[in-house]
Amino acid sequence: MNIQEMILTLQNYWSKQNCILMQAYDVEKGAGTMSPMTLLRSLGPEPWNVAYVEPSRRPDDGRYGENPNRLYQHHQFQVIMKPSPDNIQELYLESLKTLGIDPLEHDIRFVEDNWENPTLGAAGLGWEVWLDGMEITQFTYFQQIGGLEANPVTVELTYGIERLASYIQDKENVFDLEWNNGMTVKDIFLQPEYEHSKYTFEESNTEMLFQLFTMYEEEAKVTMEKGLVFPAYDYVLKCSHTFNLLDARGVISVTERTGYISRIRNLARSIAKAYVAERERLGFPMLNKEEA
């Protein structure tokens, strides 16, 4: 099964479980969790079921396309369900079957793994799912988001697309994975992997990036004060990616580093609060929708 078929299969499956099928969010981010479709929508009492593929950028993991396991940008398939359904484990295992993974022929395990993202004031409990010893999915019950208690609890499934594909296609090198019939990850991503790595580690204009960080941060604050939660959050994401670029370049000094992280966290926290307040002001419309 190539990657394209995997994605189609998962989309198909989760759309049948009443998930809204979304497209990737159009601002750079380090993980699918950071999409507002996960991070903001997990907050508050309104039900929310969604699935999407998220290209995730981790500048520090860039390896010029030379490492068989690491990428500047990889793909996550993200499923979010709030409140977490009682049969979520069964739903998840069914999804593996649609990918051709017969649990009787394999060893599938739920191994404790608790997740925490201090930058976003987020934490959850759950497992990493092992398929014959390989971690293929992060399975998390959110307990806290943006410093707020998650109530009801959202469950998040994050499939590592390339990981899973390397198992399904039995490939040792991520660049040998088939994206569709005829095209490989190498064909599509080798050049950007190399160029992004070179940019990140050697060529980025750090002075400009520092300026951008400050400008994005300022804009996030101003925008939030106007009650515009989503645009404000976009600027937080931009801050986060800019920070990651600077950090990977090794130009953020010690004292500054903690400072930057707490600046982003403070923004994320106040936006989380603002989002809930705004939904409340609107009377939690999606809650009413379900009752109707």
Binding site: S84, P85, N114, Y141, Q143
Partner: peptide, 9 residues
Amino acid sequence: GKNMRWGEQ
């Protein structure tokens, strides 16, 4: 050692 909540519980 560590507890969690789930669903609407």
